[in-house]
Design a protein around this nucleic acid. Structure first.
Lengths: 221, 221
DNA sequence: GCTGTTTTTACGGGAAACCGTAAAGAAGAA
DNA sequence: TTCTTCTTTACGGTTTCCCGTAAAAACAGC
């Protein structure tokens, strides 16, 4: 089992539970923070003192408050810590349920485990710790099989821009001007129309209103 | 302080923390369930045994799984328990942050306290318990002042229907037929257009797409 | 009954969006 | 270079939406 673990989790109630779970699992040192910036500082100091953390357990979304933070979310935190300590193991503990997003964490950030805040999360947390301490990864069941079965469309940065502008009230016919001004590549009105049509088609939406609603639900805008 | 409290919370990690908080606060009997139906049965039995719970602490959203449930969420649970035990105190512990929705809980379900899952939630939970045991209500700060200051438009049932249909891809011109078919009163196309125009005006939206995005954020569709 | 007010509907012109097709342009290979 | 292929843009016709005005209907008070 791990000897030194760092927790970054803004919800006090979740933070407490994770701590308790770690203690029950026999983790020796178990430090915790409510902010990403704090977590990063702790990791840095521990590393400088030559007593690095072996595992980071972090949430994904952190709420903003009066304290201005450089690292806004779990993904930022993971990226920064990995820069100074590439081999630290990372377990993400979050309520996020979208397979595409979780999948991205494994692919782009190379996290070692994901546990979703859900009905049996403490149990899952224990299993994940077990797996990690043996050098394995821990992936939620849904992810192992799904990934491909998902009828999901891969949104490009370009798509997000279009959707964002639309959802902010910009007229479709005015988007080309905006695109050109900001240096985005296909800026013709036809390209915009084509792209929107493609998205609607792929997601089974007949109108832009439905598309916007759908993407809001998906959380991409 | 309370002697007998019932917890309904599907996330094990949250459930554990609430329990611990209650124990620390000196609550004698503290039962917990992961499903609304289970919670209702417990409340019913306790009432029949003439040892009713004094306080219910419940989440709002419960995830569906293989166990088919009659009560789908915290609001359902509160409604049903209040039918058999009208004076039980209710504390809602949820991640919901939309003022309009929380406000509705106080108004329509007459809940006694709301604590949002957030950075200092355990602390808040303690304060809420304190307040409740003294016979007071516990309302998050934001709610006390806001409510009125909100630049919010009062959505009618009719408005919601229009927005819902739009967000599901129905063409504007087809909505009159739908309205008439379902017996909703002003069913003319002009009325639909007028109403939408009014909403856009009131909320500062220039297009339907923006309106849909806005209402998605507000959580009314 | 009648009259005035409000709500609802009908209509029509103009703007925007939708969709197909064809031309223009960019990128790559021989 | 030239040819091919793919992407992007331009254009035109049709549909839908937007918005103002006027007619029709519903409602209230007298």
């Amino acid at each position: 089992m791990f000897h030194k673990v760092l927790i970054a989790e803004d919800h006090e109630s979740s933070n407490v539970s994770v701590r308790k779970t770690l203690e029950d699992a026999g983790v020796g040192i178990c430090d915790y923070t409510y902010y990403c910036d704090d977590a990063f500082q702790r990791a840095r100091k521990a590393l400088l003192a030559n007593e690095p953390y072996e595992l980071l357990i972090t949430d994904l979304s952190f709420e903003e408050d009066y304290r201005e933070q450089k690292l806004k979310n779990g993904a930022d935190l993971i990226t920064e810590i990995r820069k100074i300590q590439p081999h630290i193991k990372v377990l993400v503990f979050s309520a996020e349920s979208k397979v595409s997003i979780i999948d991205q964490l494994f692919r782009d950030l190379a996290i070692d485990a994901y546990v979703r805040k859900a009905r049996r999360d403490v149990e899952e947390l224990k299993k994940a710790l077990e797996a990690l301490s043996k050098g394995n990864k821990y992936m939620p069941f849904a992810l192992k099989q799904a990934v491909k079965t998902q009828n999901t469309y891969e949104f490009s940065e370009y798509d997000i821009i279009l959707l964002t502008q639309l959802s902010q009230g910009m007229l479709q016919k005015d988007i080309p001007y905006y695109l050109e001004k900001n240096g985005y590549k296909p800026s013709g009105l036809s390209s915009v129309e084509k792209r929107l049509n493609l998205m609607r088609e792929a997601l089974g939406c007949s109108k832009n209103e439905q598309l916007i609603a759908f993407c809001k639900d998906l959380g991409i805008i």
